[in-house]
Design a protein around this nucleic acid. Structure first.
Lengths: 237, 237
DNA sequence: GCGTGTTGACTGACCAGTCAATCTATTCGG
DNA sequence: CCGAATAGATTGACTGGTCAGTCAACACGC
């Protein structure tokens, strides 16, 4: 119906502190059913996929009645929209913050790669859902959020551009392409973990951060220590 | 039900020569309705997405009766399976062929990147469908074809491994990771074109091949002329 | 006794897949 | 050569099941 409703004003990440499921116990209201539904949806979407699951699966997983899902969300779509936007917004903010700091490119891009990989490490299901059902779904959801997704690419592109202007990165590789390449490497690694094509111990994830930077920056940087000696030996088609 | 049927033994790419739609006219049989349906499905899947389209949309697009789709294919799924396998098999063969030739890594990987980008250039809709509906769909189809998809990664990984053994690529970046990175960059560029986030003239596509190689190989290769001087300056956390 | 939260049975639409009937081409006996 | 028999291609109305979303009623705090 009326386009997007955009609930969830603040960041609202936190909570989820303790472990148990059980009833409220404490004094305050019941622990935000809305959040309960959202978290359950992540699990269900990750397990069965957005299209293959029913709204009742989400309700069951959350342990609430079917109708309550529609009390908090206008539609099944809105549940996914909310999950995506909530997380993507956090990432956009991180990129902006990182960009604002006076750091070398390697560290800026490293911080972004780390954030994404840590996000996966912290909540693999959520990242799976975002990537599989939104980011990579050119039809349906990808189309709806294309503007938001694009913003991330542009922000990264701006970082690359600045690095080029400062003489750290080769100017002949267009910044937009470089940004896509950088993001593509990260997303493909996540995909590898999601599909279980790549080993995913804590150690591997940590090492992957280094690999991303080493691979991409290595190719983007002007050769070596900018000593002048080894510059432009084999490139320049 | 019974798993895969795997029609389409040969490659069977070609056909589709002339332009017009109209009735057969000539003498021979009507031009392979099966192919007609497959080609129509590509267009419909690309336009509406696999889940959002109805089988009747495919039949309409192909200009055949609804039931005929089921004469040639056991299910809607099988149509997509066929499209994917048909194309992926061609790519796997190309990678094997390239690997068998005695070429420098840059040229091997360049040939693979070129093939994929040319495939997109030649039939964007088909590549869009394969990437969006299969390759990146961790649930449903991605799951079904995971083995076939993985084969491509492994083949590329083997190329990287050999390059490492020959001393062209850094041994400290695991070959499997490097292969994912390489493929990830390409897929993300295609995604950029599919979503219209990146300019896509013939010139851009051609240039992209170079960017992929320059970026990835640049990061993977042992620094410059392997002089020993600039090695391991800032890495090794 | 009002509003927010909560329940779950119900409905209306939608669509994958079926099937009996019709059409077309090819074979073959006479 | 012709017409009957056979097999495959083609048609589209119909069915059965599934599910997103609705709604009337109930719970409960203030």
């Amino acid at each position: 119906m009326s386009a997007s409703r955009a609930r969830a004003p603040g960041a609202a990440t936190g909570s989820q502190g303790g472990g148990g499921e059980g009833p409220p116990a404490g004094g305050a209201k019941s622990p935000d059913k809305r959040r309960l539904i959202l978290d359950a949806a992540v699990r269900v979407f990750a397990r069965q996929g957005f299209h293959a699951c029913r709204v009742s699966d989400i309700a069951d997983e959350a342990g609430v009645a079917y109708g309550l899902v529609y009390h908090y969300f206008a539609s099944k779509d809105e549940v996914l929209d909310t999950l995506f936007l909530e997380r993507w917004e956090v990432m956009l903010q991180l990129i902006r913050d990182v960009d604002a700091k006076p750091l070398p490119v390697r560290e800026k891009l490293g911080a972004i790669a780390s954030f994404i990989i840590d996000s996966y490490s912290h909540d693999p299901d959520l990242m799976k859902v975002i990537i599989v059902e939104v980011t990579r779904a050119a039809n349906s959801f990808g189309d709806t959020h294309i503007g938001t997704i694009r913003e991330a690419y542009e922000l990264i592109g701006a970082i690359v551009e600045k690095a080029q202007a400062d003489g750290y990165f080769k100017p002949e590789i267009e910044a937009r392409f470089a940004a896509m390449a950088f993001y593509g490497v990260i997303e493909q690694l996540l995909t590898g973990w999601i599909f279980d094509l790549l080993p995913q111990g804590q150690e591997e994830l940590e090492r992957a951060k280094w690999v991303v930077i080493e691979t991409v920056c290595g190719g983007l940087e002007i050769d070596a220590v900018s000593d002048g000696t080894t510059a432009g030996n084999r490139l320049l088609r």
